[in-house]
Design a protein around this nucleic acid. Structure first.
Lengths: 351, 351
DNA sequence: CTGAAAGCGCTTACAG
DNA sequence: CTGAAAGCGCTTACAG
C-alpha cells in the first residue's frame, strides 16, 4: 500500500498549473515521456532527437499549451531576443516624419520573422542615453539599431565601449566609432535631383539643406555642390534647424531673402519641402511655374503636397531589410560590412 | 601553509570577469563585504538594510560597474519589465499618421521613467497576432497597450483569455471584452466641430467619416449626427476606407458627387483632411470660401495644410499618460477604470 | 539518441 | 538587520 497523501512529482506539476503558472518544460517532458533535456533539444532545432521522441514532444507541446519562459532561456543563452531601436536625436518632432514610421514598421516585421523583437528607446537626454547604455551592458538587448545620429553624439562612442553589436541607419559622422551602417546613397540622390532641376533650364538653383550636424544632411548638400560647382554659393544655401515642416518653412523664407531670384530649390527632405512649399505660396511664388521644388525621401506625404512633390526615393524597405540583416550577422558574431543603397528620381508635378 | 594553486571563491569571480561576463551580484557582495541577499535588498528599495551596508553596497556597485541581469531577475519575479505596444490594425499605412508617432513617443518616455520598456508589435496578420498572444502567455511582456482596435478584431478576445493586463487606446468596440480604455471624447469633439461649422452659417454640411469598423469612427460620426439631426442624411456621409491621405481624397471625391452643393465638411481625421483638401482643390472649390473644412486630431500636419486646418485637438500627451498610468495600475494588480479625455476646438483658417 | 546534473544570476521566505 | 539556502525554468556539456 502506498501513502496517497505523500506529495509526489506528479502532484507538484498539477499544483503549479492550478496556480496559473503555465506548464513548464518539466510538464511537457512528463507528458511526452522523455526527459527535460530532450524537450529542450527538440525545441532548439531537434538535433540529436529521434523522430519518435520528436513526435511525442510535439504532441505534448500542444496538449499542454506550453510556452517557453524566455527569461529562463535568456539567463543561460545570454540572448535576450530583443533589439533596441534607438532614436539618438532629440525625438520631439522626429516622430512626425513618416520615414521613421516606415522604417520602424518594417524593422519590427523583419525582426519578428527572425524571432526577435523591437524595443523602442529614446536617447535625447543624458538619462535616456544612460538607460540605453545600461540595456546594452546588461544584455537586455542583443544589439542596437542606431537611428538618426548626429555629429558629436556621445552615445555612439559610449555604445562602442559596451561591445554590443550596433548598426547605424544613415551614414554616421566620420569622427565617431566606425560602426557598420546602412544608408541610401544621399549624395548621388542629391546629384540626380540637382541635375534634373538644372536640366529643366533653371539658372538660379538653391537648396534647403538638412541640419548641419545630422546624418544625411552633409551628403545631400555635397551632391548638390557636385553638380553646381561654384554656382553653389553660400547665398544659395539655407540650413534647416531640424527635419520638420516648420524648419522647412523658416529655411525657405530665409532663402527667399538672401536669394530672391531663385527659380528652383532642392529641399533635403519631403517634410522640409512641405514647409518650403508653404513659404513659397506665402511669398506668392507659383510652383512649378516660378520655382521648381524637389524633395528627398519619397515619404507618404510626397504625393499629397500641393503640387505633388517631385522627389528622390530612398528605398526604405531595403534599408530596413539590410539594417536587420547586418545586425543579425553581427549578433551571430559574423563580420558585416556597410551598404549604400541606390536612390531614384520620382517625377511628379513640383519639378 | 595554504595551497595557493587550489581554486578558491575569489578566483572564480576574477575568471568570470576576465571572460567579459560583467560583474555579478556575488562580486558586488564580495567587494561590499556583505552577502548576496543584502545586495539584492539594497537594490530593491533598501528595506531591512542598515545604512552602513547600504553605503557599502552602493560603493561596490559603482566600483564594480555592476549591471543587473534582467533575465535572472525576471525569472524569479515573473516581471519582464516590458510592455507591448500593439498595432492591432493592418499597420501598412498606419505609420503615416503623426498621431501614432506622438503616442508611441510619449508612451516610451513615460514607461522609461517607470523603469519599463516599450516593445513594438504588429498584429495585422494571424501570425503576428499569434506572436502577440505567445508573448502575453509566456510573460514576455507585463501588459499590453492595444492601439487601433477595430470591430470584430479577434485579438482582443484572445488576449482576454491570457489574462495579461490590457488597456485599449480609443473606445473599444462594444462587442469585444471589456478592457479598460483611454480615449479622447470623440463624440463631443465631433459635436464641437459640427456646431462650429453650422455656426458659421453653412447649410449643407457633410462629413468624411472614419472607416466603419475602426475605433473612434463611429463616435465621431455620432457626434456629427447629434448636431445635425435629420439633416445628416446618408448622401452627406462618406466613409473613408482607412485613416490615410488617399482614402480621404477618395471619400471627398465621392461626397462631391453625391452632394455637390455641400458648403462645409467635417473630416474625421487630419490625415483624411489632407486628402479631402486635395480633392476639393482638384474640384476647384476654394477653402474656406466655398467649403469649410474641419479636421480631427490636431496632429503635426494640421498647421501645415493649405489653408491651415481648423481641427479638434486630442490631448495626446494626456492620452499617453493615462494609458501608461492605467496599465501600471493593472500590472500592479489594482483595478483601474477607463478615462475619456476632453477635446477642444483649434481654430485656424480652413473653417 | 538520451538522461542526470550542473549552472545561468537573481529574489525571498526562513532563521537567527 | 543579515546570511544561508532554496528555487525560478531553462540549456548544455558529460556520460552512457
Amino acid at each position: 500500500m502506498v501513502d496517497d497523501t505523500a506529495p509526489h512529482p506528479k502532484s507538484r506539476g498539477a499544483a503549479r498549473r492550478a496556480q496559473r503558472r503555465g506548464p513548464t518544460m518539466e510538464d511537457v517532458a512528463e507528458v511526452a515521456g522523455v526527459s527535460r533535456g530532450t524537450v529542450s533539444r527538440a525545441l532548439n532545432g531537434g538535433a540529436h532527437v529521434s523522430p519518435e521522441a520528436l513526435a511525442a514532444v510535439h504532441d505534448a507541446l500542444r496538449s499542454t499549451g506550453y510556452v517557453i519562459n524566455q527569461s529562463a532561456r535568456s539567463l543561460v543563452t545570454r540572448r535576450s531576443g530583443a533589439v533596441a531601436f534607438v532614436l539618438s536625436d532629440a525625438p520631439d518632432r522626429l516622430f512626425e516624419d513618416p520615414v521613421l514610421g516606415a522604417l520602424m514598421r518594417t524593422c519590427t516585421q523583419l525582426l519578428a520573422e527572425r524571432g526577435s523583437s523591437l524595443m523602442l528607446m529614446l536617447a535625447g537626454t543624458p538619462q535616456e542615453r544612460e538607460r540605453v547604455l545600461h540595456f546594452a551592458r546588461g544584455g537586455h538587448v542583443d544589439g542596437v539599431l542606431l537611428v538618426s545620429v548626429h555629429d558629436g553624439d556621445p552615445l555612439a562612442a559610449q555604445l562602442h565601449e559596451t561591445r554590443v553589436p550596433v548598426v547605424v541607419c544613415g551614414r554616421p559622422p566620420s569622427r565617431g566609432p566606425a560602426f557598420p551602417y546602412v544608408a541610401a546613397d544621399d549624395r548621388d540622390g542629391a546629384r540626380l535631383m540637382t541635375r534634373h532641376l538644372a536640366g529643366r533650364g533653371r539658372r538660379r538653383i538653391a537648396t534647403v539643406a538638412g541640419p548641419r550636424d545630422m546624418a544625411g544632411g552633409a551628403e545631400r548638400l555635397q551632391g548638390f555642390r557636385d553638380v553646381l560647382g561654384r554656382r553653389a554659393s553660400r547665398r544659395v544655401i539655407a540650413h534647416a534647424t531640424a527635419y520638420t515642416i516648420d524648419a522647412g518653412r523658416d529655411a525657405m523664407t530665409r532663402l527667399l531673402d538672401t536669394c530672391p531670384d531663385l527659380d528652383a530649390v532642392f529641399v533635403a527632405s519631403d517634410l522640409l519641402a512641405v514647409g518650403a512649399l508653404q513659404a513659397l505660396r506665402h511669398a506668392g511664388r507659383a510652383v512649378p511655374a516660378d520655382v521648381l521644388v524637389g524633395g528627398f525621401d519619397d515619404s507618404a506625404i510626397a504625393p499629397a503636397t500641393t503640387p505633388p512633390l517631385t522627389t528622390v526615393r530612398q528605398p526604405l524597405p531595403r534599408v530596413a531589410a539590410e539594417l536587420v540583416e547586418v545586425l543579425t550577422q553581427l549578433i551571430a558574431g559574423r563580420p558585416a560590412s556597410s551598404r549604400v543603397l541606390p536612390t531614384e528620381l520620382v517625377l511628379r508635378e513640383s519639378a
